[in-house]
Design a protein around this nucleic acid. Structure first.
Lengths: 241, 241
DNA sequence: CACTACAGTGAACGCCGTTTACTTGCGAAC
DNA sequence: GTTCGCAAGTAAACGGCGTTCACTGTAGTG
């Protein structure tokens, strides 16, 4: 029943494997994350890893889950530094934390949010990576809901929303925040903000703004300054820290 | 001087190689685009390809250039279907063409705009792919400039622009449209629009909106409807064609 | 203490990019 | 019209990859 000594040892090894994989990812790039390299680093041989993961792809999926968990923790940490009632501060903080984390962890970010690898054949059923991604999204969503509850901002009414969008928004709402009377307009605005935030971060991190800018940060702040008033928040410059 | 028979044959082979590589990319995904597979498909052997390309990475860069050229042609085609004076129509057309092309060519899009492959060590000097990308960007930029010339929309004055941004905008402006008095505010708004457009398209194509939406098109149209008035344009629904 | 289940190994298979040494046959020059 | 250079293409090999399989030894269980 309880975890035997074997179980604990096994869990520790699993952790060591994913940690090693991640370290190689960070230090040498995605192509260097091979089973043989991981095993070599751990003082064992590649086939041994198959005792812990069915394939290279599944190992990577586990790494993805770990990274999502770390990113989520980082966002929470950034949030906790903001005074309780300061919703503008919280939203700006979480957006900036996200960008800064992405910036400081480019290769990990690319693994989470880059073009999907052809190993996309991941079954959804109880996928560790999928769960972690869900929790990650929850940080933003729940902050958004708190914001709406405390100080509702104007949102389109249901019949102002594109009919082709309504059903999708409803499904997403009922799946993530079941049994609620949350207006669909809130969900729509949440997704619009999310697209702008992650879109901007991805373009920057993947270098797709380099054709024009070598420091996109002011553009990012400009976007935050545009988004804040939509949500009834006041934009503030970041702490110079 | 003029191209000899040899030269023509060689050029034809280069074209056949990139075409084959691209077909494999489309049909079997990025991992299947190996030198051996390309050669096999062409009835030759892998080392033979080294007569035409220094490495696998350089071959891919050439494919990228080809794809950019095709995409650019597609955008021009979409533009040419819009009446001469209809600037709203042109901007909406080019944005929608871009999204639809991306959608219909996911794997090619991913090669152009995905997380950069670790072969990013491409020297900029006279790079075919880089040139083609430049031409691609030019489609949007020149449309934007035409728009501004014909019907100037409000833009921030130079001293309303973040000082950290001004220099970058100036450098980009002077590099792409030299010897002009184009206000930096136009460049800023161009880049803001570009970030929103490409950000939205990338998230959608890479499947990063699937957590909420299975048909993001209405969200995309919503974005266009937001952008149009900023540029003094009237939003119109797409032709149902 | 016996034994089994499991962690880990070594060898092998078929891929990959790339290098090397080599053949072959076309095109140009005499 | 013959000769010759050079480019196109090949076969073999290297090291690395993911993965499979048959195996060993040992640590934990009964």
């Amino acid at each position: 029943m309880g975890e035997s000594r074997r179980d604990r040892q096994r869990a520790a090894t699993v952790q060591e494997i994913t940690d090693t994989a991640r370290r190689i990812l960070v230090e040498e790039g995605p192509d260097a994350v091979t089973l043989r390299a991981i095993a070599r680093e751990m003082g064992m041989t590649a086939p041994g890893l198959y005792r812990y993961f069915d394939s290279h792809a599944e190992l990577l999926r586990h790494v993805v889950g770990d990274i999502f968990a770390d990113l989520t923790a980082e966002l929470h940490k950034g949030l906790s530094a903001v005074p309780e009632g300061d919703m503008s501060g919280k939203l700006l903080a979480v957006a900036r934390s996200f960008r800064l984390w992405a910036f400081a962890h480019r290769r990990e970010y690319a693994l989470l949010f880059g073009s999907p690898l052809p190993d996309l054949a991941h079954r959804k059923e109880a996928d560790f990576a999928e769960e972690s991604a869900q929790r990650f999204g929850g940080v933003f969503l729940s902050l958004f809901l708190e914001l709406w509850r405390k100080a509702p901002f104007p949102v389109p009414s249901d019949d102002e929303i594109d009919p082709r969008l309504r059903g999708q928004l409803r499904r997403y709402r009922d799946f993530t925040v079941p049994a609620t009377d949350l207006p669909l307009g809130v969900v729509q605005i949440f997704l619009q903000c999310w697209v702008r935030l992650q879109g901007a971060v991805s373009l920057e991190v993947f270098g797709h703004l380099e054709f024009a800018l070598d420091n996109p940060e002011p553009m990012f702040e400009l976007m935050l300054a545009e988004i804040a008033p939509i949500l009834g928040l006041k934009y503030r410059k970041p702490d110079p820290s």
